[in-house]
């Protein structure tokens, strides 16, 4: 983990509230899919903001985020050439196994960011990507890697299946050959549903969790979530023990 300055290479509005931020610089240890960075957005904000890494290639760190509050709003207004202080790469990434060849990725909203990095990383595998969004305008088409079988769902039915991506996932698993693994990212309810489907179909599943963070380095225990530990549970840090957890370990609220 390092703390260093990155220069903004570009800020691109992909669609509606979704942006791609490219930062120029490099880490001594290359990030792996599922890891995130903790970014100092602005002096007016006391805390940093955690953002999933969506790509890291040729000294360009790519982030994809949606404007949800003050921090992401300020970030979307940044200009090329500005410098941002970054702590990273942080956290445990997605487990990867050579024997997992048939891969199912399920992402909702900007929960797709770590999955994009992962799919790029697993380019040799056969991947189906189930992508859910509010409506057609909220799908970041230009951010999606090629060579992947995509299935979309939108809440209003303006693109792909109508309804939640969790429903599409459930249908997909019923009708298709069983994937070797499910990777997920997105809203809590979606991750929870992935956990249920993983259990029902007996497929290992790993999801990238999110939470409010203060330190983002495993120091303050602010971002914890309930994780099974033997016959009991304990609060584990999303930033350091995660953000990726096996759905089997998570105690869902």
């Amino acid at each position: 983990m390092e703390a260093k300055n990155f220069k903004i290479g570009s800020v691109t509005n992909l669609t509606r509230q979704i942006y791609r931020l490219e930062l120029e610089g490099s880490f001594t240890t290359s990030p792996v899919p599922g890891q995130f960075i903790h970014i100092k957005v602005d002096d007016r904000l006391f805390l940093r903001r955690p953002l999933s890494i969506a790509g890291y290639k040729n000294n360009i760190l790519t982030l994809i985020f949606q404007v949800v509050g003050e921090g992401t709003k300020m970030l979307s207004n940044k200009k090329k050439g500005e410098v941002l202080n970054v702590i990273g790469p942080v956290g445990k990434g997605f487990p990867i196994n050579k024997n997992w060849k048939n891969i199912l990725a399920v992402g909702g909203g900007t929960g797709i960011a770590p999955l994009i990095f992962l799919i790029d990383y697993l380019s040799h595998s056969r991947t189906t990507f189930l992508y859910g969004a509010r409506s057609r305008q909220y799908i970041a088409f230009t951010a999606l890697p090629k060579g992947v079988n995509y299935i979309f769902a939108t809440d209003d039915g303006s693109y792909g299946h109508k309804g939640l991506i969790s429903k599409t996932t459930s249908d997909f698993l019923r009708k298709n050959e069983k994937p070797d693994v499910i990777y997920g990212g997105g809203p809590y309810e979606l991750l929870k549903k992935i956990g249920e489907l993983s259990e029902k179909h007996n497929i290992p599943a790993f999801v990238s969790m999110e939470n409010r963070m203060a330190c983002g380095m495993g120091l303050c225990y602010g971002c914890v979530t309930k994780i099974k530990s033997g016959s009991v549970w304990e609060y584990k840090r999303v930033c350091k023990d995660g953000p990726v957890f096996s759905t089997k370990e998570i105690i869902w609220e």
């Binding site: 006391f46 409010r212 963070m213 203060a214 303050c220 225990y221 602010g222 971002c223 914890v224």
Partner: peptide, 8 residues
């Protein structure tokens, strides 16, 4: 329980 952190 959560929330444990709140920015002011």
């Amino acid at each position: 329980p959560q929330p444990r952190i709140w920015e002011t």
